[in-house]
């Protein structure tokens, strides 16, 4: 009798710690943030003392040119970075998908940039972009060209940040697409070869369509992460010059710590979160749709037999 009770309680015992930690340190803060976004709250006040201002923070933000600018910079950054990385990553995977010695060493080297701390990535790029001792300007100078104001001119600063992100994250897409490529059915490729498809035709009509499900998921994962980038930009430019590289995450942290407007920062976080929720649901819906489609196709195929 007692052991039956223990057995019935077991799953809850196993789950309880995880549920507790996530409830206390993840769900509660998020709920708290949603509540805080309706308050006029500065860091020296307890939350109970803060004044309830309804939607004022949200409306203020919509009218705030600096916020709109940083929203735009975030979207621009995410779009530019993710599209360039997709093209480069998938391209390299198609190019390097050969059976060669040392492929695993190569993959190991390629994941290094993603593993080290974003702070450190920012640090080494900042050094390389340095106006006088950085390697880029030194090379330009030794070639007799004019130095480039990598981090001190708005447009160049944006480009510099994009380059650093591409360096760090293209390998992610490369490795996922390589995994997708190597799990493609060999029979399809062989059939195409026998039918005389050229290399390009194989890529466009066979490989890419078959990789599509993985590519879409990769794209969305990368897109979500691109909205979370903060440390690299913080170290490289701290959002400047002007607002040229101030992405939303950075603006949230500055609004909270420098301008001491916790309510507004929370409202900003909510805008960012809404954007990401839409993306995530798109991804989940896409997953479900493809699963349903493959199930339907399989069923149809079985009925034909």
């Amino acid at each position: 009798m007692q052991s039956a009770n223990v057995n019935r309680a077991t799953p809850y015992l196993f789950l309880a710690p995880a549920a507790l930690v996530m409830a206390v340190a993840l769900l509660y803060p998020i709920g708290y943030m949603i509540y805080a976004s309706f308050l006029d709250w500065n860091p020296s006040q307890r939350i109970g003392e803060a004044e309830f201002v309804g939607l004022r923070n949200y409306i203020n933000l919509l009218g705030d040119a600096a916020f709109r600018e940083s929203f735009y910079v975030t979207l621009k950054f995410a779009t530019v970075v993710v599209s360039l990385e997709m093209v480069l990553g998938v391209g390299l995977a198609l190019l390097l998908d050969r059976n060669i010695r040392g492929m695993s060493v190569l993959r190991t080297l390629f994941i290094l940039p993603m593993m080290i701390a974003p702070i450190v990535v920012g640090l080494m790029w900042r050094y390389m972009y340095h106006p006088s001792v950085g390697v880029f300007n030194r090379t330009l100078k030794s070639l007799g060209l004019d130095p480039i104001p990598w981090l001190s001119d708005g447009n160049w600063a944006f480009a510099s940040v994009v380059i650093a992100d591409i360096w760090q994250w293209t390998p992610f897409i490369f490795i996922l697409s390589l995994a997708a490529l190597q799990s493609l059915p060999q029979s399809a490729m062989e059939a195409a070869r026998i039918d005389g498809a050229t290399g390009w035709q194989q890529v466009i009509y066979i490989k890419l369509p078959l990789m599509m499900p993985v590519l879409i998921v990769t794209l969305l994962l990368r897109l979500i992460d691109a909205f979370k980038v903060l440390e690299v930009i913080l170290v490289l430019t701290n959002g400047g010059p002007g607002l040229s590289t101030e992405i939303l995450s950075l603006r949230i942290s500055r609004t909270a710590s420098e301008f001491r407007e916790l309510g507004e920062a929370a409202a900003m976080s909510n805008y960012l979160l809404i954007l990401l929720v839409i993306l995530t649901f798109a991804m989940f819906a896409y997953n479900k749709a493809t699963e349903a489609r493959t199930a339907r196709l399989r069923k149809a195929a079985e009925e034909d037999v």
Partner: peptide, 22 residues
């Protein structure tokens, strides 16, 4: 999992600071 993956640390910044402090 996906939902949690999408939450940027920047979003947790304000509430975690408030709750942990007060």
């Amino acid at each position: 999992t996906l939902a949690m993956r999408m939450v940027p640390p920047a979003v947790l910044l304000v509430p975690v600071f408030g709750i942990w402090t007060f």
